[in-house]
Design a protein around this nucleic acid. Sequence first.
DNA 1: GCGACATTCCAAAGCGCTTTGACAAATGTG
DNA 2: CACATTTGTCAAAGCGCTTTGGAATGTCGC
Lengths: 343, 343
Amino acid sequence: MNLKELSSLLGLSQTTVSRALNGYPEVSEKTRARVIQAAEAHAYSPNTRAQGLATGHSKCIGHVISVSDSAEMVNPIFGDFMAGAGETYSAHGYDMMVTRVGAQDEADTYRNLKARGAVDGIVVHAPRRNDSRMELLDKIGLPYVVHGRSTGVTTPYSWLDVNNTRAFSEATSHLVGLGHKRIALINGQETMDFAIRRRSGYESSLRFAGLTIDPALMSTGEMTEAYGYNQANTMLDLDTPPTAFLVASIICAAGIRRALDERGLRVGRDVSIVTFDDCLSYFANGGDRPVFTAWQSSVREAGATLAEMLIDRIRAPRAPHDTKLWEAAFVEGTSTGPAPSKD
Amino acid sequence: MNLKELSSLLGLSQTTVSRALNGYPEVSEKTRARVIQAAEAHAYSPNTRAQGLATGHSKCIGHVISVSDSAEMVNPIFGDFMAGAGETYSAHGYDMMVTRVGAQDEADTYRNLKARGAVDGIVVHAPRRNDSRMELLDKIGLPYVVHGRSTGVTTPYSWLDVNNTRAFSEATSHLVGLGHKRIALINGQETMDFAIRRRSGYESSLRFAGLTIDPALMSTGEMTEAYGYNQANTMLDLDTPPTAFLVASIICAAGIRRALDERGLRVGRDVSIVTFDDCLSYFANGGDRPVFTAWQSSVREAGATLAEMLIDRIRAPRAPHDTKLWEAAFVEGTSTGPAPSKD
DNA sequence: GCGACATTCCAAAGCGCTTTGACAAATGTG
DNA sequence: CACATTTGTCAAAGCGCTTTGGAATGTCGC
């Protein structure tokens, strides 16, 4: 069923039917009702491609997922982010397109998406320091919003970020307040801007507390369970092992917990853990007494909000940029306690 | 830059340029080379929508993600599956569209996707018993492949599934062989076909071993970490608690491990765990000695293969259906051991 | 030198929609 | 009742591509 058929069925012109369905005022309410009813009866939905060709926009949002070359890691927050964004998109009649790409073809992918007119806008994921994507997207004129920020990029852009510096600074202070002096940082990949901010929050709090910053207690890598496990083991084997771990993701924290359990160390008594928590739906850290003491911020809500921001941006590409800095929430779980006294 | 501009730039007709780029033989190699070079120089990519309108297909694959109404769970395998499928799609010039939908609007979503001509085919995720989607898709004529199978659906369809029955039957036998008599099943939602098969594999092995099937040792639910934790705690509080857990996902298994650790029970000695493992990139169960004894099958590879199958299907919609039953691989980890002797 | 046959290219139609500009019909105004 | 205005509708153009059905041009054998 297409417009032509539907309109001849109704004895109306394509123009009138199209206008009736798209809510234009030039058509009488009586006709409109008749058209809408017929459209529903025949399950008519305008052909997306034809509509897009005629209007000049695709009503589709792109998400480019860079899969790192080294490890073939898929970011575990991906699903929840998409779920949040997807809800917003469908509410506004947008489709969602996902493109997987190796890091080196990144720029080409963006250019291609624009040239083909495949999407009206995109969400930039996992910004790096001095990320070149914003400049590229500005140049080619593809609207975008950024999930996170990029230190070093001076031209304005729209973003939503969690206050990572503060979360990690406060988390460190919290541990310091509990008497911990050897606090390890199990960070994400420090090519990522958020990881750099997290480290800087951690370092500034250590410095403030007059504690030394020990490179042996800092690690950076892809936030898998195994990475947490391995790093914890390495650090616990040090001559002066850490008494607390500050961790970039709950998946990682699970790995650290495993290492501790295996060594017979009691989490929250022998060794403390504070983690950042993206509120993943399959790894909830909630309840009366959450497992992990954590700074949390829902990646799903971030997805929904960024989607909203992007749609606004597509509607008004010249509007001033919108930026949102969300504060993570602190929840105290069972994974922290006073530093064990040395005997 | 569009076809019209490019062709006038080259002093050729649109026909010739189009044919040159699409590899038709009616154009001399000399001209073709010239055209291709110009196209690259001007970063020309045909407009997707126009191309789709003219050819009648969208070169786009749909993935409909049903988000359960109860819990707002996003399946943790989603990201890895997409990564696998995405690779195949881009290799074949297909885009990937993701639609998030609540369970009740499911049928409408499929119909709409077809009516709008938004996708050329779709992947059916998480089939239920007597799943109605295959019949619907056959009726509306939208090519599809199924990730899993649906008991009760008699019309043929293309699918790829892991031999869940066998994996869970063997896993149970393995535990029985180690002397376990009280083996718990922490299953996924038993509205899902795969969960039903897993249970049946488990039950048949118990029956074969002459062990009683105790409903108190079987649970079904969404496979989150917290679910595993809660179920383990409930069952360990029974008068005659299980000595082994058979688990549907590694995320769940992590929750069970947490419950055990918390109770001071040693995994693999006091209580055994066997889990199904989808080889999630952020929760790898590998190395010399894997953490969990597991039956594993890569969901990422499943994604890549299903994508391939779907593309074939789109090319030849009347071809006989392709079905693939993959056997999961057994890996022995540290999470299993002989049943503790009663004293 | 001429018909036969490839080879190489093109004009134009068509995909299904939106939108412009025009035109009847209905309504209001003096 | 003549005229201006609004209302409701339509035919046709255009979005950027593919593809059909020719039409030139070149090559060859006789």
